[in-house]
């Protein structure tokens, strides 16, 4: 069910999901974006996940939980990569509201995401700014 954006407050947890970045998922992502950086080497013993794949695939669950309305736009993105992630790792993404304001008829929502390995190792921290039709 879509969230009621009007009543979202800073600090509200909007998503908390565990996910596995398996070889098929990462390969599909890399093929879609056409990444040729060679960070991801599927034939290696422990292939590394391209950092933007961690961001995009973490955002996947958050988008599901946010139930964003049609016409929502991505206005800005901050990401901090703190550790490399290998294919097959289980990660947890916790998303909280960092900003919720209306400016010139457009609702600007900031969503902070922390992607964690195990109990406390943050592998990526991010903030997405989205513009939701008010």
């Amino acid at each position: 069910m879509p969230l009621d954006y009007v009543n979202l407050s800073i600090g509200d947890v909007v998503s908390c999901r565990e996910f596995v970045l398996d070889l098929d998922t990462v390969s599909e992502y890399v093929a879609a974006v056409g990444d040729r950086s060679n960070v991801f080497e599927p034939e290696s013993v422990s292939p590394m996940v391209p950092p933007m794949a961690i961001g995009a695939l973490s955002l996947r669950g958050v988008l599901d939980d946010l139930g964003i309305p049609s016409g929502t736009l991505h206005a800005g993105q901050e990401m901090e990569f703190l550790d490399s992630v290998l294919v097959g790792e289980t990660l947890k993404c916790r998303a909280t509201i960092a900003q919720n304001s209306v400016r010139r008829g457009v609702r600007l929502v900031g969503v902070k995401m922390d992607v964690v390995r195990g109990a406390r190792t943050i592998v990526m921290s991010a903030k997405s700014m989205i513009m939701v039709p008010a």
């Binding site: 960070v39 996940v49 736009l73 206005a75 901050e78 990401m79 990569f81 550790d83 490399s84």
Partner: peptide, 12 residues
């Protein structure tokens, strides 16, 4: 070093 220490700040 990018996946281990990179920071990105972008505006669309």
């Amino acid at each position: 070093t990018w996946p281990e220490s990179g920071k990105l700040k972008l505006r669309f």
